[in-house]
Amino acid sequence: MRRGVGAARFAREKERDTRFEAVASQLTATRVAQAREHFDSFRLKLQEFALKHRDRINKDPVFRQKFCEMCAAIGVDPLISSRGFWSRLLGVGNFYSELGVQVLTICMATRPQNGGILELSECCHRVRRLRGNLAPPIDEGDIERAIERVAVLGHGGITVMKRRGKTTILSLPDELNPDQTIVLDLAHEKGHVSCRQLNEAFAWTKERSMAVLMVFLREGLVWVDTQVTAEEGGEALYWFPSLALSRLEEDDE
């Protein structure tokens, strides 16, 4: 006897498929509902946590960083989520906006002397001085996060450059071209560059090096030093003040 042949079999299989589908969609719905429930309870927990530790989040840089890391790991951005939900809850959003403005202010204020290149540590130092002793303490991580916030302002804003274990804040009117970028990169090593250094590092001609250095000089990114002693190489050095000063401080320590 052959089983399930003909119209009856099709009907049966169809019915079975329908049942499977029904079960499947029920399962999916359950999972979604569960996930939503988890998410809701998680959000509640996070809120409770944030409220409970509000003071610490605002006052303790290490704790704040951990909190931000935790939020980042689970894809919640406490700074922009829920249309100011967090800022209402914590004032955290305001915290970074305010800090971002302070960082920008310092970048602008120091531009005449550094041409828009500022070491993160120096920036942090200056922000602390600007905020005064009574303000909650901040650390370099806070400054980086604040810069990410203001970076959304777009072109001509500020960016962060990480090179050779150093973090530098760039607030330049134009983007750097590739030649300029690698010169700045090399400058992180000693705080200054010269035609010879560029020739040794990249086999550049004097003309190519000078083209970059003259733009840097004109834009105020570098200070020229024409009193270089013979032991120091004898040729003009081009100094990036903020990079050089942070090196001097390290030498003193």
Binding site: P112, Q113, G115, L217, R218, G220, W223, V224, D225, T226, Q227, V228, L237, W239, P241, A244, L245, L248, E249
Partner: peptide, 19 residues
């Protein structure tokens, strides 16, 4: 701190920097 920076002793050619 600029006093410790060697180029501080070279008068700068760029107007804004020199100012």
């Amino acid at each position: 701190e600029f006093w410790d920076l060697p180029p501080f002793f070279t008068i700068q050619p760029t107007d804004a920097t020199r100012e």
